[in-house]
Amino acid sequence: MQKMTVIAKEIKELLSQATAKNKVDDELKKYLDYNDRILYLQCDKTILVGCIGIQLLENNRLEIKHIATKKAYRHKRIGSTMIDYILNTYAPFWKITYKYEGIDYVVIVTAAKKDKIEMDGSRPLSQEDATVENKMKKNGRYGLLASLLFFLINVFDILPDSTGPFLATFVLAGIGVWIYFAIKRHSFLSSNKKHLQTNLHDYPEYMSLLKQYPE
């Protein structure tokens, strides 16, 4: 599918099947001149076999103004294919914001199909990514607990005094492990958030709504 950029004779002939012949030129001119009107062309290799024209409306809605299939290609689901393309290209979506551990996150939920939604956002969505984050959090806590344990052993003189320097080293090592995994986890979350900020601009629908409703 491609957008019409120039008016050709074969496009006129095809659109005449969807509107009165004396209105074809005016309708095609609207598709070229108006930003809210788009005519998509369906081709079979180099042969124009169908077209579908839409008008973008308010509140992320649209209206199909024209649809036509070349006579020789009818009953081959050309019309259904064009409608599916429009539904997938202009699928409605929702922007969800929430907080997690004091950080703001965003998820884009797109109604890709009638019975299917897709999600994209800054939090790990897969079980694998969630497991990685939880493992970093758990390892950091283990280091902190080990540090606390060695500190208590040293305070209550459970081991001989000669082990003092070693216990102090273990305490510092435990704190170091906790700091290491805290930094690593923060970097992991920041990387996801940075990816989202770039990734959101891949959504033309999001950019369109952002202009209408600035954050």
Rank of each mutant, 00 (worst) to 15 (best):
M1E: 07
Q2V: 10
T5Q: 09
T5C: 06
I7W: 00
K9T: 13
K12Q: 13
K12N: 10
E13K: 12
L14E: 01
L15I: 12
Q17V: 06
Q17K: 14
A18L: 05
T19N: 06
T19F: 08
A20K: 12
A20N: 14
K21A: 12
L28R: 01
Y31C: 14
L32R: 03
L39C: 13
L39H: 03
Y40E: 06
Q42W: 10
Q42P: 06
Q42H: 12
C43I: 08
K45P: 02
I47S: 11
V49S: 09
I52E: 02
I54E: 03
Q55T: 15
L56M: 15
L56I: 14
L57T: 01
N60C: 13
R61S: 14
R61L: 15
K65Y: 00
H66W: 05
K70A: 15
Y73S: 04
K76M: 12
K76D: 04
I78L: 06
I83H: 01
N88M: 05
T89F: 01
P92A: 01
F93Q: 01
W94F: 10
I96L: 08
I96T: 04
I96E: 05
I96A: 05
I96M: 06
Y98S: 08
Y100F: 09
E101L: 08
I103K: 11
I103V: 13
D104R: 04
D104W: 09
Y105H: 15
V107I: 12
V109F: 00
T110E: 02
A111W: 09
A111G: 08
A112E: 07
D115N: 14
K116P: 00
M119P: 04
S122G: 15
S122W: 06
L125M: 10
Q127H: 12
Q127W: 13
D129W: 10
V132N: 07
E133V: 13
R141E: 15
Y142D: 12
L144C: 05
L144M: 13
A146H: 06
F150G: 01
F151I: 04
F151Q: 15
I153E: 10
I153L: 15
V155D: 05
D157W: 02
D157P: 06
I158V: 15
P160W: 01
P160K: 03
S162L: 11
P165L: 03
F170G: 03
F170H: 09
V171W: 09
V171F: 15
V171Q: 08
L172H: 08
A173W: 11
G176Y: 02
V177H: 02
W178P: 04
I179T: 06
R185N: 13
S187W: 09
F188Y: 14
F188M: 07
F188D: 00
F188L: 07
S190A: 13
S191P: 00
S191H: 07
S191Y: 02
N192F: 11
K194E: 11
K194Y: 04
L196M: 11
L196I: 02
L196A: 04
Q197W: 04
Q197E: 11
T198R: 08
P204C: 02
P204F: 01
S208R: 14
K211T: 07
E215Y: 00
